[in-house]
Design a protein around this nucleic acid. Structure first.
Lengths: 154, 154
DNA sequence: TTAATAATGATAATCATTATCAATAAGGAA
DNA sequence: TTCCTTATTGATAATGATTATCATTATTAA
């Protein structure tokens, strides 16, 4: 884990404070949950996890915090088509945890993959540069997802 | 438009019938709406459009038909983060209408772009081939989306 | 025509997410 | 510290997109 449980990463204090936000216990707890899993958790999953340690923290706060984390770019919100959003810590495209998803359109299984990241980064660099210029659009993030049938569902 | 209004494309009859489905008036009407716009319509948008010509067609049928079209691969369901799904006719990766989206995380504006499709197709081909083999996953579709700030929101 | 099945539409139900609002906690200034 | 301002929180209710139900209608094949 890149930082100690319950503390958050060193840059976090700064990131929060720099924006006028406070790094509170609920927010730390939620970040800890996100940081200690490789699953694709929805808001309620996170709420339940947090609830084990901090029963006083409510679902509303989880939603609010997740929105904040998404806004500040610390968390990415995914839609896998099952009606509930999933949240994961953001990793920069060359970061160690950067990955994409294979989504089975039959059973909904999600497979993470980290292959082809280099080639992808190449394309993205070129694409982002071009699109930024052409459409005057400042790109901060991207989503790549493949859909199909997993082993079991073929 | 690739086919006459109210008729559907030639392959459609076959596609529907081959699966045991019927190409009914409501389904034709919904396909016509999707085929005659470049906007990113949600279910209710489509319902309202269809309703102008066929007031008897209900919202339920629109949802049901869209789900069917998504299942058969004729339509792609997008999530732009505003809480409602958007639907577009599918185009093959080299098809004339194939495009991706720039999503403004501030105002929600969507910009379609068709640039870099060739390079993208290259990467996708390689990626799909590799992933299919490695994870035994049969890829049928993909999603690429860029997030950032549009001209106005920067 | 008839029997079997697919499709439809009105309605009600579901369920993830948001809005409200009063209560609490945290930070800065004096 | 103590006061003041502002941010944060949690319970509750509200929202709103999507789905389930179910009786009715349309379509197909024999």
């Amino acid at each position: 884990m890149p930082w100690k449980d319950g503390c958050g990463p060193p840059w976090l204090q700064g990131k929060f404070k720099g924006c006028g936000y406070r790094l509170t216990v609920p927010r730390q707890a939620i970040l800890d949950v996100l940081n200690s899993t490789t699953e694709h958790l929805c808001a309620e999953d996170i709420y339940l996890d947090v609830h084990k340690v901090h029963p006083a923290i409510g679902l509303t706060t989880v939603y609010r915090t997740l929105e904040l984390l998404v806004q500040t770019g610390m968390v990415f919100k995914f839609d896998f088509g099952d009606g509930k959003a999933r949240y994961e810590l953001t990793d920069s495209p060359k970061g160690i945890g950067h990955h994409h998803h294979l989504v089975c359109t039959d059973c909904g299984r999600i497979i993470d993959y980290t292959d082809f990241i280099d080639e992808e980064v190449e394309l993205l660099k070129r694409t982002e540069r071009g699109l930024s210029k052409k459409y005057n659009f400042k790109i901060t993030n991207h989503l790549i997802q493949f859909y199909g049938l997993c082993k079991k569902c073929q």
